[in-house]
């Protein structure tokens, strides 16, 4: 599907401020950080998690354990695809048992990814709590899921796509709304 840029929503500066606010809110909400861990969802959530981890390290001088989660095998639409989606690595080098987990993704849309992520995490153990941090909340939820921390709420239409571009993967920090060129 071809698409074009509809609007540029955030630039590097705005993205940086949003990340800082999210990091502060996570610290405010979790007075005890001993059990706090971050888990980024493949793929962009991994880099969002890394940014937040780095900011928290700068502010509080603590190095939060950070994991990588691929939810593909827990998706609810696996049977619908002609071909199978690519599996990426899951790398959680700590026990999730009794941890306060902050689950991190770039865009929150239907909520189905988060449902899959929670199922996946509970296969690994029983965390004390799971919180959700997303960089963009674009609405259109299909499940009773809402973020505890968000960089920005961005109402969109369903046919649009939110593209969170980060230096780690796209060489630039910006958030774009894309729309299809044809219907």
């Amino acid at each position: 599907m071809e698409e074009k840029i509809k609007a540029k929503i955030m630039d590097e500066k705005k993205i940086m401020r949003a990340f800082q606010r999210m990091a502060v809110e996570i610290l405010e909400n979790n007075r005890v950080v001993e059990n706090l861990v971050l888990i980024g969802i493949q793929k962009k959530g991994v880099f969002v998690a890394e940014r937040i981890k780095k900011l928290i390290a700068e502010m509080e001088n603590i190095d939060l354990p950070t994991g990588i989660l691929d939810i593909t095998l827990f998706r609810d639409d696996l049977h619908k695809h002609e071909q199978q989606p690519v599996i990426r690595k899951t790398e959680i080098n700590f026990s999730v048992e009794d941890k306060d987990i902050v689950l991190i993704d770039d865009v929150l849309f239907t909520g189905r990814t988060i449902r899959a992520a929670m199922d996946s995490i509970f296969e690994l153990g029983r965390p004390a709590s799971v919180q959700l941090a997303v960089f963009i909340d674009r609405g259109h939820r299909e499940l009773p899921i809402s973020p505890d921390y968000k960089g920005k709420y961005l109402p969109t239409s369903r046919r649009e796509r939110v593209n969170v571009m980060l230096k780690e993967t796209d060489d630039i920090d910006q958030v774009l709304i894309m729309e299809p060129t044809r219907f």
């Binding site: 691929d70 593909t72 095998l73 827990f74 696996l78 690519v86 599996i87 990426r88 690595k89 899951t90 790398e91 199922d119 996946s120 296969e123 690994l124 153990g125």
Partner: peptide, 22 residues
């Protein structure tokens, strides 16, 4: 593709619960 997919599956067999619903 098969090898890359298999590399991701290696990790599942090291978990306590060695099962995914795929």
């Amino acid at each position: 593709t098969i090898l890359e997919t298999a590399e991701s599956f290696v990790e599942i067999s090291t978990r306590d619960v060695k099962k995914v619903p795929a």
